[in-house]
Design a protein around this nucleic acid. Structure first.
Lengths: 260, 260
DNA sequence: TAACACAGTTTCGCTCTGCGGAACAAGATT
DNA sequence: AATCTTGTTCCGCAGAGCGAAACTGTGTTA
């Protein structure tokens, strides 16, 4: 797994620990943790409060953190946007297939998403949705879980069995309720992928969302995932398999022809 | 200016230099510099190549950089997206006014943008545009210049005169052709803002784009800017002032009523 | 084929940076 | 007034991060 921690002994002299710590501190913020104080940041990151104080001071100076006007805590600042944009602006496949994704989203009341793996999640690089689809308001940058989402299962299914086992092992360390059921679903998805070329998530990630996903590779071996999802009251499981799965497979075929 | 460099003498012991250096290295990447090697990164950041090598090694380990499959260089990885998303997801005013922005964009063939200052640019936090407007394909995270864009001029106009002078000074250090003309335009925009409450950019940022912008403050004193722009062959200067400026002022009035 | 150029990595001695426990400060609470 | 909580600063220390130099690998040139 490419984002693995450096070796713990001996110390990796090429690894810049202070940089890693500062970035981890930024990652403590999320859509559900918008405002954090030094105590909270210390608890989340495990860093001593003096270290946290120096990190927050530095990040504030650089425009990545700002003081929250309502409290003595911090929130992210706009500097982080510049980083994300430079990434999105250069995802070639995204730019090329977005019109096709838009078309699919407009024809049906669905969302069409393009994701890549980031740590133990799938992160949205592009998302096109029908204007009526509001329950799936996920935006570029949002993450969904590897184990329960169609996209995550598709990613895992694309791996060699031993690599998939390694991920399942990591994910299992963060054991949630019904973990074994999730493992079973991941295994089923891998079989479905082998037989049909796609993976499903029917009310697993979000109780009211059905989705199908197909992984594909761009040049250099990077795996991306295309998915279609919609609210289950509009998009039945049967429709997912009979209408959207073939369209997704066709779209991936088009992408593969582009030789990206 | 909140993103100013720390004092050069004596050294600021609270400032974490290694973190700052690593983040600056990430900022070397942009929509026009998608792939960079160590030599290029060394040139852009001014860091010795051994330092660059350690930074790129660390950022790669953490999922913020990846090797480009076509060369021995680097490109940004998806980890940077997670940072930007956590910011966008928590901009309260953005969420509240996006429907109003969408309405405005749909009624006319324009883009309606929400920006904040980030370093010496205005960065898009939200952008809604009519589906026909393709010449202004700027996305969340994209930056536009302070001196020539309506949004930048609106930001500068909202400052006290001495603060504006400080920015002009900084900008002037990066002297471009016709800098004095740009300063004159900034001054004119400040006067326009004083008299009318809005600023203009008519073919200044982009030769074929006319725009109007209005600054406003959210709680805590943060200045944001709303703007409307469109291709000059569709949106005349007269229309900008007679149709869109009043609508923008009205929209800002609505925002001010929300007390954000 | 050997020499050279270039880009990237690694070494290594050094310095000063980043560290974290402790002390301090400020505000809130009891 | 005493105590608690959160955040900042101090300060002595150790080793992290530094950058010049050496090394490595690849491509180019004579």
């Amino acid at each position: 797994m490419s984002s693995e921690e450096p070796q713990s002994a001996p110390k990796d002299r090429k690894f810049v620990e202070a940089l890693a710590r500062g970035l981890e501190l930024l990652r403590a913020f999320s859509d559900s943790h918008s405002v954090l104080g030094n105590q909270e940041l210390s608890a989340i990151t495990g860093l001593p409060k003096a270290t946290v104080s120096r990190m927050t001071y530095t990040l504030k100076q650089l425009g990545y953190l700002a003081n929250d006007p309502h409290s003595d805590k911090y929130r992210l600042d706009a500097g982080v946007l510049a980083l994300g944009y430079a990434y999105v602006a250069n995802v070639q496949v995204s730019r090329l297939i977005q019109p096709l994704m838009e078309d699919l989203a407009k024809q049906h009341q669905v969302s069409v998403g393009l994701t890549v793996r980031e740590r133990l999640s799938m992160i949205y690089v592009e998302n096109c949705r029908h204007h009526t689809v509001q329950s799936l308001r996920v935006e570029v940058g949002a993450s969904i879980p590897l184990a329960t989402s169609a996209a995550g299962r598709a990613y895992l299914a694309s791996l060699a069995a031993h690599e998939r086992a390694e991920f399942i092992n990591y994910l299992g360390e963060r054991q949630t309720q019904d973990w074994q059921q999730q493992v079973d679903a991941i295994d089923e998805a891998a079989i479905c992928y082998q037989n049909h070329g796609y993976c499903l998530s029917l009310g697993d990630w979000n109780r009211t969302v059905n989705a199908v996903a197909v992984p594909f590779q761009v040049q250099g071996g990077k795996t991306m995932v295309l998915s279609i999802g919609g609210p289950s009251y509009l998009v039945s499981a049967q429709q997912i398999e009979q209408t959207f799965a073939p369209q997704l497979l066709h779209l991936v075929e088009e992408i593969n022809k582009m030789r990206l």
